[in-house]
Design a binder for these strands. Sequence first.
DNA 1: GTAGCTGCAAACTCTTTGCAACTCT
DNA 2: AGAGTTGCAAAGAGTTTGCAGCTAC
Lengths: 138, 138
Amino acid sequence: MSDLEERCTEAGLKMTGQRRAILEVLKTSGDHPSVEDVYDRAKKLDSSISIATVYRTLSLLDELNLVTRHEFQEGYSRYELNWDHHHHLVDLETGEVIEFQNDELERLKVKIARDLGFDLIDHRLELYGKKIKSKSKK
Amino acid sequence: MSDLEERCTEAGLKMTGQRRAILEVLKTSGDHPSVEDVYDRAKKLDSSISIATVYRTLSLLDELNLVTRHEFQEGYSRYELNWDHHHHLVDLETGEVIEFQNDELERLKVKIARDLGFDLIDHRLELYGKKIKSKSKK
DNA sequence: GTAGCTGCAAACTCTTTGCAACTCT
DNA sequence: AGAGTTGCAAAGAGTTTGCAGCTAC
């Protein structure tokens, strides 16, 4: 799906090698990489890339809404492509991030906002939990 | 409600003037102050206090779960007493933070976590919206 | 008395930015 | 050609930490 690049050029961005590398990294990353992660992975595709460019590019992509910036409680940002809408459950024991989607939740959050007199523009929900060990399924 | 101090001493903390000032600030703050905010307000009660102490104390209170640290998308932390459980709706036009609580949401998030095989330990939900202007109530 | 706490300043981490050189279009 | 982009290094913002002196218990 290379219309990611299209959407960048449509927005007036020049397609440089560095940007192509970063987009490629994002497209092939199934996780939620930090800036440093993106930098390390992009360096393998374009060893001349600098971390300043990664910061600048990710900010641009965020402004274009092509990417979502997350701030889990870690003191730094993580990014992911803004393809499908979902939320995150963070495994507190392993740090693993699980994605989920829930229609009832989507409906509910719109209702909550409207009841407060607001149009919902954006939102974020994060769950933090521990894997249920050997509890028998009930 | 001064058993805030009690809970600190119970946890083995010494009750110094600086800590009393910080607790007082938290108790009398209806908003969600940043570290800098807490520092400024506490200085009025104890002008000798340093920002390092504010950082250290808020971290301690966070560990004791007496306080909740928020990271709205601003690049710094904000704190509030951990008294009643609620969530936040941020007015994107004014920056105002509105608190709300919703039972259906509480129920739903536990269910979502359990369906994924997790015990829910913590979570955060933030809504970002704009005030509905003159739409007639329908 | 002493473990814990504090202020200060330096250090650290993450992120942004000024600038001169370079490169897409 | 020229506006946009880059790497570099320096600067910024927020936060943490080492240390010597101080304080609650």
